[in-house]
């Protein structure tokens, strides 16, 4: 999916991001009203909103780039850095908090060695919190790759990571075979 770019790749990645953004923009009118739907769709394609996408969008809608940046940083949904291969979102709704969601978050932080909002150096995982996913009965909940997992306590965190590790080992093996 998303590989770590070396310096030579950066320019081409930027150009590619511009191309994708332009393609998305074609589907929208040049009205300010469309800003948030555009941002959602671009993030849907790129996984995040890089600088070059912001300037493209600003130009298209004829608004200052700072306005685009302002809207992106205002809303929780938008991210400025590429996501990891797997997304870990810890629910911190009231029910989850009271049943130890903060302890679960600590466990994820400890194991992945990153803070919420960050991606691991190998871009395997990104960690974030979410206000409430509405599965309060199964608190504490962690949403792993869009799937809400119930009763995620520190030992379950280790279990989920172990499953991913095995998946990764399988993937590496496949890759080395195809090389």
């Amino acid at each position: 999916m998303i590989a770590i770019p070396d310096e030579n790749d950066t320019a081409s990645e930027e150009a590619q991001n511009r191309e994708t953004t332009k393609k998305v923009l074609k589907g929208f009118g040049r009205k300010r009203f469309n800003l948030i739907p555009i941002l959602q769709k671009v993030q849907g394609s790129l996984g995040y909103l890089p600088r070059e996408a912001m300037t493209e969008i600003a130009e298209y809608l004829n608004i200052p780039a700072i306005d685009v940046y302002g809207v992106i940083t205002f809303y929780n949904q938008f991210r400025l850095t590429p996501p990891g291969r797997h997304s870990i979102r810890v629910c911190l709704g009231t029910a989850c908090h009271m049943k130890g969601g903060y302890i679960t978050l600590d466990a994820w932080k400890r194991r992945l060695e990153i803070n919420p909002g960050e991606t691991t150096a190998d871009r395997e995982f990104d960690l974030d919190t979410v206000a409430c996913v509405g599965c309060c009965t199964m608190a504490p909940v962690t949403v792993v790759d869009e799937k809400p997992e119930g009763n995620v306590e520190p030992t379950r965190v280790d279990g989920i990571l172990l499953a991913f590790e095995q998946e990764r080992a399988g993937r590496d093996e496949e890759e080395s075979e195809s090389d």
């Binding site: 009205k31 300010r32 009203f33 469309n34 800003l35 948030i36 739907p37 941002l39 959602q40 302002g70 809207v71 205002f74 809303y75 929780n76 949904q77 938008f78 206000a131």
Partner: peptide, 25 residues
């Protein structure tokens, strides 16, 4: 349909309208 982008304050009606108009909520 308009997809909100995750801002609690947008539950307030004037903020919600600002958000629909493509501005900060």
């Amino acid at each position: 349909l308009f997809h909100g982008s995750g801002a609690f304050v947008c539950g307030e009606e004037t903020a919600l309208i600002a958000s629909l108009e493509g501005r900060m909520g």
